[in-house]
């Protein structure tokens, strides 16, 4: 497969995951806001969301309308839901002949739907909720179409890889923001706080799955354990690490590259850590540090994927 094609499939997938994550996070929190009244609390919340989405914070970010517009439908920045969709489509467009017609058609319709929203002057809360719901549903549909209409070949694995890396980073950043400055992990204090933990789980579609393991008794340490170390839940960081390692292994077979190369060793180490580490140890030694380490390992894997498959030096390829 062309290196450029691998690159585009990888980024198409990362941008879609980003659009879905942002849409879900915003949807969960804007619904939550309806049940609350404190203005200062709201502003603090928005700042936290911006941090969790790795959006640069500007003074006017606190204003609700500006905030929503910036992060949903603004096309001048790279982090809005609309921009992520546009960039995903642009990447797909560059490799149209490598994805199925059904995939292209679905993604194209998602894009047409999203830019159409820009024409609405004052978006109501209900319209916004519909928008987020549509975005999430259509991206899920796209994933279903991808799985059932595209060969599960090297290109498909680059798509899985992109999603795995993007999701691992998003979830670990989100956890990092939520757990910042916390000292007690074994219970939650007020009802208000309960809503915050509920929101965290829902932002990862994890509430129902969590209750099936731990019941509806929300505890920060258990939530951290679930979102970091659960083996079976698709939004847990461990699940992502497993998927990254599997995809890289499949790509190694397809490209006949060595499984002992640095990128595979690094992915294997991340996977092993998340498979064997215990939440109590992690919390004792510092959750923040642990999450930072995961983010940095993901960044290194990304860099090595480029050096191995996409932007390798030509001289070494000719001599090899």
């Amino acid at each position: 497969m062309l290196s450029r094609v691998a690159d585009s499939l990888y980024w198409m997938s990362r941008y879609l995951e980003r659009a879905e994550h942002t849409a879900r996070l915003l949807d969960v929190h804007s619904i939550l806001m309806l049940e609350r009244v404190s203005k200062t609390e709201d502003n603090k919340r928005w700042l936290r969301i911006l941090e969790a989405l790795r959006v640069p914070v500007t003074p006017e970010s606190g204003d609700y309308d500006t905030f929503i517009n910036t992060i949903t439908l603004n096309h001048n920045n790279s982090f809005s839901v609309l921009s992520a969709i546009r960039l995903a489509r642009e990447n797909a467009r560059q490799v149209r002949e490598r994805i199925s017609t059904e995939m292209w058609s679905e993604l194209n319709q998602l894009y047409l739907f999203a830019i159409d929203m820009r024409n609405i002057a004052n978006i109501s809360h209900g319209q916004l909720h519909d928008f987020f719901t549509q975005v999430k549903n259509r991206i899920h549909t796209f994933q279903g179409i991808t799985d059932s209409t595209m060969s599960h070949n090297e290109g498909w694995h680059f798509i899985q890889l992109g999603r795995g890396i993007e999701r691992a980073i998003s979830v670990s950043v989100l956890l990092d923001v939520q757990y910042a400055g916390m000292s007690r992990f074994d219970s939650i204090g007020s009802v208000d706080e309960y809503f915050e933990w509920l929101a965290l789980l829902k932002s990862c579609t994890a509430f129902e799955a969590y209750t099936k393991v731990y019941s509806a008794d929300l505890r920060p340490d258990r939530i951290a354990e679930f979102l970091l170390l659960n083996e079976e839940f698709p939004h847990s960081v461990r699940f992502c690490a497993d998927s990254i390692a599997q995809s890289l292994s499949a790509i190694a077979s397809a490209t006949s590259t060595s499984r002992n190369s640095r990128v595979h060793r690094l992915a294997g180490r991340l996977q092993a850590n998340l498979n064997f580490d215990q939440i109590d140890d992690i919390i004792r030694e510092g959750l923040h540090h642990y999450l930072r380490e995961i983010q940095s390992q993901c960044a290194s894997i990304h860099k090595l994927v480029y050096e191995t498959f996409i932007a390798y030096p030509v001289d070494s390829a000719l001599s090899g």
Binding site: M1, L2, S3, T255, F309, Y312, V314, A317, L318
Partner: peptide
């Protein structure tokens, strides 16, 4: 390279 055309793929040239 040496009058031969290659394409850059994920599995090398």
């Amino acid at each position: 390279h040496n009058n031969i055309v290659y394409m850059r793929t994920s599995a090398g040239l």
